[in-house]
């Protein structure tokens, strides 16, 4: 009985942590990331998650032909500079911020509609014995109204 109660408390605690994390991510995205899309129009898709040091995340997105896009990859300060790459369905890297001073956005258009995978790598800490850090990472997409 005690074990069951402990498990229930544990699940409740984990659920609470998750909810707090998501809520904080939402606020972080709204306040710290969305402004970086300007003057592009936010497409309304909230792509955010709490990542840890050393984590690797990916998100596949569809980009329509002849539309102008901005991708913003926005990470909490405690995670440091995150690497992001855009990879086409053939596995070819079409952009990496490592070649552009670790910039946190990229503006581009695509000639044909296609899917691209956005890969995000959170650097691992080089300091031994330090607790692994975690923080929110958001991937936002904006487009220009070409009319």
């Amino acid at each position: 009985m005690k074990t069951i109660r402990t498990l229930i408390l544990l699940f409740g605690f984990i659920a609470g942590i998750q909810t707090i994390g998501l809520s904080q991510c939402k606020t972080f995205t709204k306040n710290d990331c969305k402004p970086k899309l300007d003057p592009y129009i936010y497409n309304g898709q909230l792509n955010s998650a709490v990542l840890n040091e050393g984590d690797f995340a990916e998100l596949m997105l569809t980009f329509y032909s002849n539309q102008d896009y901005r991708i913003v990859v926005c990470a909490a300060d405690e995670l440091g500079k995150v690497v992001f790459r855009l990879v086409d369905t053939e596995g070819q890297v079409v952009f990496t911020n490592e070649d552009h001073g670790m910039i946190d956005y990229w503006d581009f258009r695509t000639k044909s509609t296609q899917q691209l995978v956005i890969e995000v790598s959170v650097p691992e800490s080089t300091k031994e014995g330090e607790l692994a850090k975690s923080g929110c990472v958001s991937i936002l997409v904006g487009f220009l109204d070409n009319q």
């Binding site: 792509n47 955010s48 984590d55 690797f56 990916e58 998100l59 596949m60």
Partner: peptide, 9 residues
């Protein structure tokens, strides 16, 4: 590496 597919879109 540890892979997290954040979500489908």
């Amino acid at each position: 590496k540890t892979v997290k597919k954040i979500f489908f879109n």
